[in-house]
Structure formats: structure tokens, C-alpha cells
């Protein structure tokens, strides 16, 4: 048996640099200059799971991403992890999409590629963090889906077992395949590629699809115009407090003063 797996991957601003994001005081638009775009962190764990399954069952791992042409860089990087091919859905018409329009576009891309046994993706992106796309994609595809997955097992090709935390319990669900799974960072440890693999990735198939390539595309469901949720604007989230430094000649003194402050506040 062989598994045909898709991993949906998002390219997002580097989360380590979020504290550099600011709002233009006049226009109230985002200022994010100098912040690199990276593979959204949780998606790496979806890639890791896909590669583990491929080595167990055989098959193929296809990366699918929606975004500008510049995403080729991060897709090539992801191919270096051991994925087999990459599909970029890139078109100006797709820009400004909310989660619903994004999931619809990914669904159309998956359909165009002929469908998969398993669709994996990071539960939430680093930037938007809505965690909406996995369930919405599952709904568009009409497939069983589970999000926030912390454990995953598969012993045969017809179904999988996926574990998630719910209120007051850890539940294990059995999903018939094909299925859509949103994974968390807790699922596995990502193995980073070596130099040879990164070089090999340069020759791997890279497919670019535009809106015109997607069959039976309902243009009222893509991009900004197809997004029911609209951002009105951004507000600064500045929670600054005036801070007093607790000092002392050594850590013993600092700790003593800290303890005094703590015990007073605790009363």
C-alpha cells in the first residue's frame, strides 16, 4: 500500500519578530518591514508526520500552499525536509483571503491535484492563529476532520486514530480515510534536513496553479471579495506598565527584597 498525502503549508512572518511589528501612527496600517517570512511553525510538524507515514507505508507527500510567487522559497525549503512535490496556488485574485476563502481555495487545489488519502496541516498559523482552516477544509472536501491533534496512529490504510485534549478529558477518535488532520507542535519532534537534501529539493517538481487552472472555481468565494470576515483595522496592544527595578548588591539581597514585595502583595 502507498499513501498519497498532502500537507497544506502557510508562509507567515517570523513569529520571533512579532514584537517588531507596529502600527503606523497615522494610517493605522501594519508596519512589518525587515521581518522575514518563514514556514508557519506548526506546519513543520504536519510535514514531519507526513514523512513518518511515508517511510512507514510508502507513497508520496505533496505540499500545497496559497500565496504570492515568493512563497516558492519556503516551499523549496520544505521540499528539503523530504517532501516530493510542491503546489503553489498563486494569483492576485486569491489575495486578502480570510480563513473561509483560504480553505475554499486549498480545497479547489486539492481537487485539481486529484485528491489525497490524508490531508495534514498545522492546526493554526503563527500569524492569524484562527485555527479555522483545518475544519473548514474538511467541510469543503466533505471529509472527516479533527483539529488540535496531539497523538496520531495509523496501522492500516482505511482509518487512523487521533488524540486530542477536550475539556476535562483526552479523547481518541477513529477517522475513516481520507481525512483531514490539524496537528499541534506537541505531536512530534521535527527532524531538520541536511545539506544534501536541501540541494536535492532544487530539482523536485514545483507546480504553480493560478485561479484559471482551478476547475469549477466559484470566484465569489476567493480572495478578499470572497471573504465574509473583514478586518476593519488594527489597534495597538500596548500594555506597558511603569516598572520598578528591585536591586541589591547580590542575588541574596535582591531575593530578600523581592520576597518582601511578593509577601506584601500576596496579603
Amino acid at each position: 500500500m502507498a499513501l498519497n498525502i498532502a500537507v497544506c503549508m502557510k508562509v507567515a512572518p517570523d513569529p520571533d519578530k512579532y514584537n517588531q511589528i507596529s502600527l503606523d501612527p497615522v494610517t493605522k496600517t501594519l508596519v512589518r518591514s525587515g521581518i522575514d517570512s518563514v514556514i508557519s511553525g506548526t506546519d513543520l510538524h504536519a510535514i514531519e508526520l507526513a514523512l513518518q507515514l511515508k517511510s512507514k507505508f510508502g507513497g508520496k507527500v505533496t505540499l500545497i500552499s496559497m500565496g504570492p510567487d515568493s512563497n516558492e522559497k519556503q516551499l523549496r525549503e520544505a521540499l528539503g525536509y523530504g517532501c516530493d512535490e510542491a503546489v503553489l496556488l498563486s494569483d492576485r485574485k486569491l489575495g486578502g483571503a480570510d480563513a473561509l476563502a483560504t480553505s475554499y481555495t486549498l480545497y479547489k487545489g486539492i481537487e485539481k491535484m486529484g485528491g489525497y488519502d490524508l490531508v495534514l496541516l498545522g492546526n493554526a498559523s503563527d500569524d492569524g492563529s484562527t485555527a479555522h482552516v483545518p475544519s473548514q477544509l474538511g467541510e469543503w472536501l466533505g471529509l472527516p476532520h479533527l483539529t488540535d491533534v496531539i497523538g496520531f496512529e495509523m496501522s492500516e490504510e482505511s482509518f487512523c486514530l487521533a488524540k486530542k485534549e477536550v475539556e476535562g478529558a483526552v479523547n481518541t477518535y477513529r477517522l475513516s480515510l481520507p481525512a483531514v488532520i490539524g496537528v499541534t507542535k506537541r505531536l512530534n519532534t521535527v527532524r531538520h534536513p541536511n545539506v544534501m537534501a536541501i540541494f536535492a529539493a532544487k530539482k523536485k517538481p514545483f507546480i504553480k496553479l493560478t485561479a484559471a487552472d482551478l476547475e469549477n472555481l466559484d470566484e465569489s468565494r476567493i480572495g478578499l471579495a470572497g471573504s465574509p470576515t473583514q478586518a476593519v483595522g488594527y489597534l495597538d496592544a500596548d500594555f506597558h506598565r511603569d516598572c520598578v527595578e528591585i536591586t541589591g548588591k547580590d542575588d541574596a539581597e535582591k531575593a530578600a527584597e523581592l520576597l518582601r514585595v511578593v509577601l506584601t502583595a500576596k496579603k
Binding site: 480563513a99 479555522h132 473548514q136 467541510e139 479533527l146 483539529t147 471573504s227 465574509p228 470576515t229
Partner: peptide, 21 residues
């Protein structure tokens, strides 16, 4: 945990918007 999973599924079926968290 439940609401974060059910809400997007419902929004996709109803083809409506959803603001998260």
C-alpha cells in the same frame, strides 16, 4: 477545545464569517 473546532466547521457549512478567539 470543542468550540474552536465546531465553529469553523459550522461557518464553512453556513458559508458565513467567523472571528476567532
Amino acid at each position: 477545545a470543542q468550540g474552536s473546532e465546531v465553529a469553523p466547521g459550522v461557518s464553512a457549512r453556513l458559508k458565513t464569517g467567523l472571528a476567532a478567539h
